[in-house]
Design a protein around this nucleic acid. Sequence first.
DNA 1: GGTTGACCTGGAGTCGACTCCAGCTCCTAG
DNA 2: CTAGGAGCTGGAGTCGACTCCAGGTCAACC
Lengths: 139, 139
Amino acid sequence: MSEVVADLSIGEVAERTGLSVHTLRFYEREGILANPVRRDSGGRRVYHENDVDWLNLCMILRASGMPLPAIRRYTELVRAGDGTEAERLVLLRKHRERVLDQMDQLRKCLDLVNFKVGVYEDALDQVAVSSATGTDARR
Amino acid sequence: MSEVVADLSIGEVAERTGLSVHTLRFYEREGILANPVRRDSGGRRVYHENDVDWLNLCMILRASGMPLPAIRRYTELVRAGDGTEAERLVLLRKHRERVLDQMDQLRKCLDLVNFKVGVYEDALDQVAVSSATGTDARR
DNA sequence: GGTTGACCTGGAGTCGACTCCAGCTCCTAG
DNA sequence: CTAGGAGCTGGAGTCGACTCCAGGTCAACC
């Protein structure tokens, strides 16, 4: 019925996630993988689609400024399973606050930059117009 | 008529901006101040309100992820004065793109976190309810 | 059976942005 | 006149998050 879900090499995971193989090994050392990575007969890492999903989640958290120690903690809680939901919730709520703070900062910055871009656009238009009226008589 | 606008010591600037005196000296080395810092007879830095304003601008840019080299470049252009507006505009537009990208990332993350927070809140409510129905018979 | 290419490890290196240290000067208050 | 506090400098240290290196294994293909 369904396709056999293939195991993945570290290189394939790198390709799928956009992380480098270096980073994947580094994240593993840092305890950032929800389930411990299996190894094949030759000692090579064997990943699963789940791992890719988890890594994508982690990448979203990282991109929003969650530090690795917090991601590690969250990972530990998920690995530990039932009974850790309360702490996960605390952790996520804390991160949400940080995200909202960052959005505020960015909005502030965006306003500023929009304003300044407007100023410079106007200034340059002025220059263009005056140089046009000075040197350009077509029409 | 108007108050004499006071000169400021590095400590006062630190207090007003929230940057440390270390960071202020560091930023100066990095060329992040719009006008070169004057010194008093004893070689101490003398700042002006303008510098505080400029630093506040820089802090907004930093907080939105503009790297110091870009801020330095922008500072150089402002210092250089007329004729550099076009490049300033380019720089600001580029940063605006980055800010918008970051906002997108944050929105994505916020959706995710909101969703997960919801899931955990529901899960914990469930626990609360079932433990209540198990042990608590008031009404 | 030799070469390639992907993978392995432990540990070192890099980069950005601070942050701090040692040892000094200078001013002011007691 | 001296003790304290704020500043000064050049340079070193720290921290987070990668990033890379040397030297080795292993399977596959020519």
